[in-house]
């Protein structure tokens, strides 16, 4: 186990390094950031000086070395637009995103698992077919469009939920959280529902497939034979084993939610780090894009690592090599 942990840690560092190379290369082949910092009427001499100040007159290799060493020293560069450290900008907006992702995930699980168990246990019933068609529709819907329709119905037409923003926030340990206020909950409903649909559909389908697979196995027959109640058989014996594949996609789904949050935040003007990324892409604010990608890559790598560990804890048959 210890050897495995060390191996995984080295792998994580390698992945992050590869990501840093790709991000750096892509960013240096596109556009010239000098024009982001100099005024429109700058002279050639001023442009050359700005280029020197940014270190853009040096070879790619030198530039990459500087990029990497400053990353490792915790210097993530400053936004061209806000003139503030890019990392601070992102971290300020992270709680808003995390909050939305967690609410969406909780919602997806709360709806998907009971429905998935039902559909897996009664595959031929009419309700199950209805659930499955619904879940396929959930995968086929463009998420941003769902958000838009929800805004039109609930905000513009009926006026029951706000269409944008985060509402009131309360501070907890210096972090602004909207889940602590009634107004915050009022604001998070539409974006969280929008974000959760895709994940809900996928978890539902995985749960159903897992339940059907488990249903064929001997221990389920045995549980029924020993007279366990139907709900005990389904939830205590069945679901526990059916959830193993669900846990593996849980990490990927969390990543997907973070990625799709960029779109949801843009529609609902939710002040999270995803909206910051999209705004920074519009403004070609390269340092913010780079830091966002590195930070998200780090988060994904950590999530995958945790999923692997959790995987072995819930399924002792698996050994990590």
């Amino acid at each position: 186990m210890f050897a495995y942990l060390i191996k995984r840690l080295i792998q994580m560092v390698l992945v992050l390094w590869v990501v840093s190379v790709i991000v750096f290369l892509m960013m240096s082949f596109t556009g010239d950031p000098v024009f982001m910092v100099v005024p429109i009427d700058a002279t050639d001499a001023e442009i050359a000086q700005a280029r020197r100040l940014l270190g853009l007159d040096q070879s790619l290799l030198v530039q990459y070395w500087k990029f990497l060493t400053s990353l490792l020293q915790g210097d993530f560069g400053r936004s061209y637009v806000f003139r503030q450290p890019a990392m601070t900008l992102i971290l300020e907006r992270m709680p808003a995103t995390v909050e939305m992702v967690l609410v969406a995930m909780a919602l997806a699980i709360a709806v998907a698992i009971p429905l998935g168990v039902y559909a897996g246990a009664n595959p031929e019933s009419r309700i199950s077919r209805f659930i499955m068609a619904g879940s396929l529709l959930g995968i086929s819907l463009p998420g941003f469009w769902v958000g838009m329709v929800l805004i039109y119905l609930f905000a513009v037409h009926w006026g029951v939920f706000p269409s944008s923003g985060r509402g009131d926030t309360a501070e907890l340990w210096g972090i602004r959280i909207s889940l602590l206020t009634w107004d915050g909950w009022h604001h998070i409903v539409l974006p969280a529902v929008t974000l959760s649909l895709g994940t809900m559909a996928i978890i539902l389908r995985m749960t159903r497939a897992g339940m059907m697979e488990v249903g064929r196995q001997d221990f389920m027959k045995f549980a029924r034979a020993k007279g366990a109640t139907r709900s005990d058989v389904l939830y205590k014996h069945g679901l526990k084993n059916a959830l193993i594949p669900v846990v593996t996609i849980f990490g990927l789904q969390l990543g997907d939610l973070i990625a799709f949050a960029t779109i949801t935040e843009t529609i609902f003007s939710w002040p999270g780090m995803g909206k910051l990324l999209i705004d920074s892409i519009y403004r070609a604010d390269r340092p913010v894009i780079v830091v966002y990608l590195m930070l998200v890559a780090f988060i994904f790598v950590v999530i995958n690592f945790i999923v692997d560990i959790v995987y072995t804890m819930i399924d002792p048959r698996i050994t990590l090599k």
Partner: peptide, 15 residues
């Protein structure tokens, strides 16, 4: 290990 939409978004922002 990265969502496709994020990779595509990043590539489009670059090209």
């Amino acid at each position: 290990s990265f969502p496709s939409i994020l990779i595509a978004l990043f590539l489009m922002s670059a090209v």
